[in-house]
Structures are given as C-alpha cells and as structure tokens.
Amino acid sequence: MNFPLWLNLTLNGLVLGTLYFLTAAGLSLIFGLMHVLNLAHAALFTWGAYAALWTYGATGNFLWALLAGFGAGLFLGLLLEILFIRPTYGKGIVQILLTLGLYMVLVEILKMIWGPSLLGFPVPDFARGTVDLMGLPFARYRIFLLILGGALFLLIYLLLTRTRFGMTVRAGVENPEMVQALGADIRIMFSATFALGAALAAFGGAAAGPFFRVVWPEMGLNMQLAAFIVVVIGGMGSFTGSAVGALVVGLSQAYMGYFFPDWALMANVGLMALVLLWRPQGLFAPGR
C-alpha cells in the first residue's frame, strides 16, 4: 500500500470516527450516568440532520444550520427526558421498549413532514471541491468535519474536566448516590446530561448531512449501530473511551471498506467481541 492511499484511508477513517464519536459520546454518558439505554438516539441524529437541512434552506447559512441541529437535539432531548424517561428511571426493560417506540414515532413524524424519500443536502460553498493529497483528491468538507470534530472534542473535554457541571457528571457516573448526598440535584443533572447527549447526536446528524449529500428518515440507524459498538469498546460512561473507540471503529471501517468491503461490518463486530472477551467493561470504563 502506497503512502498517499494510506493517508487518504486514514483521514477518511478519522472523519467516520468523528461522526461515530458525536453519536456515541452522548449515548455513553447517558448510559454511564443514568443507566438508560437510549434506542431513540438514532432518531435524534436524524432530527438534527433534517433541522439543519431546513435551516440551511431557509437561511443559506451553514453555521445556523449546525446550530439548529444542536438546538433541535437539545430541545427534543429535554422533552423526552422530562416526559418519558424520568417516570421510568430504574425500569430498564420499560425504558428499552419505550425508547424503541420513541424512535419509531420520531421517525414517522419526520416522514409525515418531509416524506420518506431521500432529500439532497448540498455541501456548503466554503467546503465545496477537493484538495490534492499527494496526488489523491480529498473532499474539503471532510477536512472541515475533522476540524469541527476536534474542536468539539476539546470543548466537551473542557466542559467535563474544567467545570463544576462536568465534575459532577463524572462523579455521578461513579457514585450517583454520593453526588446527591453532597447537595447536587440529580434530576437536573440527568435532564442536562440527556439533553446534552441528544444535542451531540443531533449535531452529528447536522454535520453528517453534507457528508452523505442526502438525508433520509432512517439515516441514524447505521450510526446508532456503530455507536453501540464504539461504546462497548470504549466503555459505558467514558468520554475518552467514546473518542478512542470511535476512531478505532472509523479507521477499521475505512481500511476494511477499501480492502475487504464485504467484511467491514464484520470486522467491527469482531473487534467488539474481542474487547468483550478481554475486558467486558470496555477499554476506558469508569470503575464503580
């Protein structure tokens, strides 16, 4: 394998990893803190993409589109937590069925508004075209995604490590009872974390629109499957684990997709199985 091809595949893997990370980070934090396996996460990803497409069409400004995606996720996440998740804390099986049902309802609402077909999502002007990477073309938008993903990782990392909110969330993942005994209102923390996780997924959907060039109502499903693999590999509740897991899965997808396309998904599932055998709690799982 020559170096330019290797570089191209690696960068593509990192771009995929960025999208997986945005979906998986919220999923992981929500499960780690609240023990909620949110199967509606895929729908939040998709809602972010549609909200961004609608806003982009209305304003022509991609920054507003990204913010609309984030905002839609924040609002929907808060709504879902207060109306449906909060009354069912501690009821694992009820939550799984409930979030699965919510996924279906949210996707059907999208179909009612925008129809079931693919809708084109144009690449914003500033990121159109390709750059030459040692003789191989590489889409500008993918470079933008890499920068965006890196910046967002840094931002959330700072939020989790440098603010009292982040410190409380990390402590809550380890010992939610003690966090309450120290004076933190766990309900507010749960709502905020759920909304943040939903907003990250929706932001991922918004950013993924021009990457896929189209949006469709079930677009979140594949992302969710990959995100679950990422979370199992990285460890439930670990933000760093989500980032590392996402990059591993993204890179494996890119390499396998090029050399053995039929085995790409199999490789990721195999990777997950290996981690489960060697370290069932995931590579970076916080201790309890």
Partner: peptide
C-alpha cells in the same frame, strides 16, 4: 455524610473530590 465505604470518587483527583464538597 461520610459513608462507611467513604463514598469517594476514585477516578477524580483529591482536589476534585474536595471541590465537590
């Protein structure tokens, strides 16, 4: 409250544990 198992957040630093108090 100081529970029997001490209730410390093991992955957080001493400073972070103190700040949470």
């Amino acid at each position: 409250y100081v529970p029997e198992d001490r209730g410390l957040f093991r992955l957080l630093t001493v400073e972070e544990n103190l700040r949470l108090g």
